[in-house]
Amino acid sequence: MPLPPRRWLDDPRRGGLAALALILAMLPLVLSNRFHFDVAIHVGLAAIAVIGLNLLIGYAGQISLGHAGFFGLGAYGSAVLSGTHGWPPLLALLASALAVATLAFLVGRPILRLRGHYLAMATLGMGLLIFMVITNERAITGGPDGMSVPGLSLFGYALGSRDKGAWYALVAVLLLVAVWLALNLIDSPVGRALRALHASEVAATVGGVDVAQHKLIVFVVSAVYASVAGSLSAHYGGFITPDAVGFLHSIELVTMVVLGGMASTYGAIVGAAVLVALPQFLTAFHDYEPVLLGAILIACMIFLRRGLLPGVLDLVRARRP
């Protein structure tokens, strides 16, 4: 999937990547306590999943209302393999990602033949089935009350969940890698074919694009993004419940994509940041939190239809003479 580095050096987008790296490096200066770091880490982990989902929704134009299923499989895969079976966390993460990739590959073909609302239903059904299995197989997953997950250790260095600085650094680096891989995929022949496909699937097919193959690749890639984000979240939190696999979490991920701006990789990060941080600002309003959240979602979709980041950029451009 990633292309040879020479191509990347020519990519004008590396400016954006450098800017992101700079922001991530400067951010700790304003994060004044562990809670702020905690929110930033949550944003980063969600953003990784959202960047992957954005490839599917934003570029390939395929909706998935079941991505929390992949996120959950990654999380529970890591939890079970590293916790119950004592595997090294990194190996557990990779094995889970591989299993999720295989599953996505197998279900991808029949699912991606579907369009629009049928695709929405199929992915939703798939996500719900994963949720039900995880909730019901109590002997393996701990059932609805969840299960504990060992801390992450990489090459002999252990990260506790209160070790915020190290976690922040890890997530920041992985986020940069996730963005870099996504940008490369978008710029590859697969990416160009996808954009053609998004514009009109029929036209793309007539134009000789192997539509099914390209959609499948992106579906698998986005599932792996979700799985890795899930594994890391499980290790970071130290405890995992089926909430992470549920329908609402799937919706949250889709909302982050749309909020940030479809087909905008950096927007995906903005979408994740807004949706993760927003409830923390709304706590003062207690009872009115869901009302405000719902109203904000609707308002963003109506007034910033292209998403927060592209929408705001448009506004800025429009103001300039």
């Binding site: 562990r34 905690d38 929110v39 969840g146 405890f239 419940t241 909430d243 409830p279 923390q280 939190e289």
Partner: peptide, 19 residues
């Protein structure tokens, strides 16, 4: 309000402890 979601509960607990 964690709304019954364990993930939210953990974030709020972090906030209670550290913020």
């Amino acid at each position: 309000d964690d709304a019954g979601d364990a993930n939210e509960a953990r974030t709020f607990a972090t906030r209670l402890i550290d913020d």
